[in-house]
């Protein structure tokens, strides 16, 4: 089955237009089926301040089959594997419907960060800690956010500012820097395509 590239293109344009949602999606290697999404950590949670990168792979059956998504950054969360970034979320499995989009899926991930479901865990260790030692869970999640999902670690403010000065969007500058592992020139090359 040929993938519905038209639909994916429309979705990407819509995400770009809707800056209010906070989530972004960028092409990886110029393929419409391999994308990287970015989800800001929700306020008043241990994930606040983090920018979470999500690997998105679209099968040929998309949008009739769900997008494959996993966190690229390490995340300490009951419904995310602390090893692989695999995500336990119903809409990424049997509850997916073609009425949903990449944007709604990423927003659902953001909602999942806000409201963990420890009764339906992906990572049993984290889930156990979430229930039995909530304070330690919060501290660990916060520490992991700062250590692994800190937009400034690979994208420090001065580097972002330089790229933004050249006329690029701030979110695009951050993600390009992150993808380039903090290498400003490589990030610029990516942006210039």
């Amino acid at each position: 089955m040929a993938v519905d590239l038209g639909r994916i293109q429309k979705e990407l344009k819509e995400i770009e237009r809707d800056t209010a949602s906070g989530v972004t999606v960028h092409l990886k290697n110029n393929s419409l089926q391999h994308l990287t999404g970015y989800v800001p950590g929700p306020k008043d949670t241990p994930y606040e301040g983090g920018l979470f990168a999500v690997e998105i792979n679209l099968d040929n059956g998309y949008p009739f089959v769900p997008p494959k998504m996993r966190f690229i950054n390490k995340v300490w969360h009951p419904n995310v594997s602390s090893q692989s970034g695999a995500i336990c979320l119903d809409i990424l499995k049997d509850q997916w419907s073609p009425a949903l989009t990449l944007k709604t899926a990423l927003l659902s991930l953001q909602a999942l960060l806000s409201s963990p479901q420890p009764d339906d865990p992906q990572d049993a260790v984290v889930a156990k800690q979430y229930i039995s030692d909530h304070e330690t869970y919060k501290k660990t999640a916060k520490y992991w956010t700062e250590a692994f999902a800190n937009p400034n670690a690979t994208a420090p403010e001065e580097k972002i500012a330089k790229i933004v000065e050249m006329g690029f969007d701030r979110a695009a500058a951050i993600s390009a820097l992150q993808e380039a592992g903090g290498d400003e020139n490589a990030a610029l090359e990516k942006l210039l395509g």
């Binding site: 494959k68 336990c88 499995k93 865990p121 049993a124 889930a127």
Partner: peptide, 28 residues
Amino acid sequence: TEPAAEPPVAGSEAPDRPSDEAILQQQN
């Protein structure tokens, strides 16, 4: 289209939970 029983999956995490990949693969 739903598998009646989910296959066991090897791994260190919650053992009764197959990965998304495994479920999708079986569905496909």
